[in-house]
Amino acid sequence: MARGQAWVLDLGSGASAAIGERELVLLLYDAAAFRVPYAPPYANRVLFWEERALPVLDLPVRAGTSSVGADTKFVAVVGYLRDGDASLQYGVLPLASPPVRAEVDDEQGCELPEPLERWRPLAVSCFRAQGVAIPVLDLGRAFGPSA
């Protein structure tokens, strides 16, 4: 039975999602982000980190489960690989509380339940923890161009 480590993210608005343990790079509190006009409502801010302008992605808005970004104080800097690009990319996810580490095994794997169907375009898989289904994010897709 395969086991893996993940971080479960509290995205606010009652939404949770998970990323791989190596995808979390940094957790910041109350970091300043700057609004960018004429950008999608789910990605209209940037945060500067190590001389890079990183997109701040409101995932529930991106998934279509919320119309406004949640009131969040924490932000996670995440790293991921983009299709066809070997260089590591970075982005920012606002969080309502610090991420929680989780150990996940194959038996916890499940289908994405109907209430989470809107997360399908952003998820690679799903698992259950304490009875709650948690989508596992494909960060490359989440931070990629909108369909």
Binding site: Y38, A39, Y42, R52, F143, S146
Partner: peptide, 17 residues
Amino acid sequence: TPLPDCMQLAGSPVTAI
């Protein structure tokens, strides 16, 4: 820096930040 992929909207005048 170029505008990140997820921030690009068709017709936007913004190319970079």
